[in-house]
Amino acid sequence: MIPHNPEESSFKKVFPSWVWILYLILFAFSIPWYLPETLSMNLVLGLPLWLVCSVISVVLIAIFTQWIITKYWTDSE
């Protein structure tokens, strides 16, 4: 075994737990399981609604990610 003693900063929590739950919800909405068949095939901008909803979910994930990085990830090194 190599002698080792990981610093406490190895385990420092950066983002609160609710962040990961919200990610789970947003990613779940990027998969079109929740739309009724009749509604999901309506064309929006020439593409089916289920596809547009999926893209919107990813846009929300990107905005949310940018926000949590700014709010929770401090610069301490």
Binding site: P6, V14, F27, S30, S54, V58, I61, T65, W73, S76
Partner: peptide, 23 residues
């Protein structure tokens, strides 16, 4: 689109800690 975005999200699960220790 989902998995290329997920890659960045998964960076966040360990990159802040790993960066600090790596330095």
């Amino acid at each position: 689109l989902g998995y290329m975005t997920a890659i960045v999200v998964f960076y966040l699960t360990f990159a802040p800690q790993l960066f600090t220790i790596s330095k």
